Lab assay of single mutants.
Amino acid sequence: DENEERIRAFALYKGIDPEKARELWERGEINKDDEEKAWREYK
């Protein structure tokens, strides 16, 4: 689903483990601007 892809995109963008990215996502600790930037680059 799209959230999974967004988490993966963010992990790649930040160079972090996707599981770590998922934890940040679930806790609401992902910066929305960074997340959008990562998503645009990923697509």
Score class of each variant (00 low, 15 high):
residue 22 R to V: 03
residue 17 D to V: 05
residue 32 K to H: 09
residue 29 E to Y: 07
residue 15 G to Y: 01
residue 30 I to A: 02
residue 17 D to N: 08
residue 35 E to P: 02
residue 42 Y to C: 11
residue 11 A to V: 01
residue 39 W to S: 02
residue 24 L to K: 03
residue 9 A to Y: 07
residue 28 G to T: 02
residue 4 E to W: 12
residue 25 W to E: 00
residue 21 A to E: 00
residue 25 W to C: 07
residue 32 K to R: 10
residue 18 P to R: 09
residue 8 R to E: 06
residue 29 E to H: 05
residue 19 E to S: 10
residue 30 I to F: 11
residue 16 I to N: 00
residue 32 K to N: 07
residue 42 Y to P: 03
residue 1 D to H: 12
residue 43 K to Y: 09
residue 4 E to F: 08
residue 12 L to V: 12
residue 42 Y to T: 05
residue 28 G to D: 04
residue 21 A to S: 03
residue 13 Y to F: 11
residue 30 I to L: 06
residue 13 Y to P: 00
residue 41 E to L: 09
residue 23 E to A: 10
residue 43 K to C: 15
residue 15 G to N: 10
residue 2 E to T: 13
residue 18 P to F: 15
residue 42 Y to Q: 03
residue 41 E to A: 13
residue 11 A to S: 05
residue 26 E to M: 12
residue 31 N to V: 05
residue 23 E to P: 00
residue 8 R to G: 02
residue 22 R to F: 06
residue 39 W to M: 08
residue 4 E to Q: 07
residue 36 E to T: 05
residue 11 A to H: 00
residue 32 K to Q: 10
residue 8 R to I: 14
residue 34 D to E: 15
residue 41 E to N: 09
residue 26 E to L: 13
residue 4 E to K: 05
residue 28 G to A: 04
residue 42 Y to F: 10
residue 42 Y to S: 04
residue 1 D to W: 13
residue 7 I to E: 01
residue 6 R to N: 02
residue 42 Y to L: 05
residue 35 E to K: 09
residue 38 A to N: 02
residue 27 R to M: 10
residue 26 E to N: 10
residue 31 N to T: 14
residue 32 K to I: 10
residue 2 E to K: 10
residue 39 W to D: 02
residue 15 G to E: 05
residue 12 L to D: 13
residue 19 E to A: 12
residue 39 W to Y: 07
residue 41 E to Y: 12
residue 31 N to S: 15
residue 6 R to H: 09
residue 13 Y to G: 01
residue 15 G to W: 01
residue 11 A to E: 02
residue 15 G to A: 05
residue 38 A to M: 08
residue 43 K to N: 13
residue 14 K to E: 06
residue 24 L to M: 15
residue 41 E to Q: 12
residue 18 P to N: 11
residue 16 I to M: 09
residue 14 K to H: 14
residue 12 L to F: 11
residue 2 E to H: 12
residue 27 R to W: 05
residue 29 E to I: 07
residue 10 F to K: 04
residue 42 Y to E: 02
residue 39 W to A: 03
residue 3 N to A: 13
residue 13 Y to V: 03
residue 26 E to D: 11
residue 30 I to M: 06
residue 3 N to L: 15
residue 18 P to M: 15
residue 20 K to W: 11
residue 31 N to W: 06
residue 18 P to V: 15
residue 12 L to T: 11
residue 5 E to Q: 10
residue 9 A to Q: 05
residue 8 R to A: 08
residue 28 G to H: 04
residue 15 G to F: 01
residue 29 E to W: 07
residue 13 Y to I: 04
residue 40 R to T: 12
residue 9 A to H: 04
residue 7 I to S: 00
residue 35 E to S: 11
residue 9 A to P: 00
residue 3 N to P: 07
residue 10 F to P: 02
residue 27 R to K: 14
residue 34 D to Y: 03
residue 23 E to S: 08
residue 23 E to L: 13
residue 37 K to T: 10
residue 34 D to Q: 05
residue 22 R to E: 02
residue 35 E to M: 15
residue 39 W to Q: 04
residue 5 E to H: 09
residue 22 R to D: 00
residue 16 I to T: 01
residue 39 W to T: 01
residue 11 A to N: 00
residue 17 D to P: 14
residue 17 D to H: 11
residue 2 E to G: 09
residue 34 D to G: 02
residue 35 E to R: 06
residue 43 K to E: 10
residue 10 F to E: 04
residue 11 A to D: 02
residue 26 E to Y: 13
residue 12 L to P: 01
residue 32 K to L: 10
residue 32 K to T: 09
residue 33 D to N: 10
residue 36 E to W: 06
residue 36 E to D: 09
residue 18 P to I: 15
residue 18 P to W: 14
residue 18 P to Q: 12
residue 40 R to Y: 13
residue 21 A to M: 04
residue 7 I to F: 05
residue 33 D to K: 07
residue 22 R to G: 01
residue 1 D to L: 12
residue 11 A to Y: 02
residue 11 A to T: 00
residue 26 E to H: 08
residue 12 L to E: 14
residue 8 R to C: 15
residue 10 F to H: 04
residue 10 F to S: 04
residue 17 D to C: 15
residue 31 N to D: 14
residue 12 L to Y: 13
residue 24 L to T: 01
residue 21 A to V: 08
residue 20 K to N: 07
residue 5 E to V: 06
residue 8 R to Q: 10
residue 1 D to Q: 13
residue 43 K to S: 11
residue 23 E to Y: 08
residue 39 W to N: 02
residue 16 I to A: 00
residue 38 A to P: 01
residue 15 G to Q: 10
residue 3 N to Y: 15
residue 34 D to W: 05
residue 6 R to E: 02
residue 1 D to R: 12
residue 26 E to V: 11
residue 14 K to C: 15
residue 18 P to G: 05
residue 3 N to M: 15
residue 23 E to H: 06
residue 21 A to D: 00
residue 5 E to P: 03
residue 33 D to I: 09
residue 33 D to R: 06
residue 35 E to V: 15
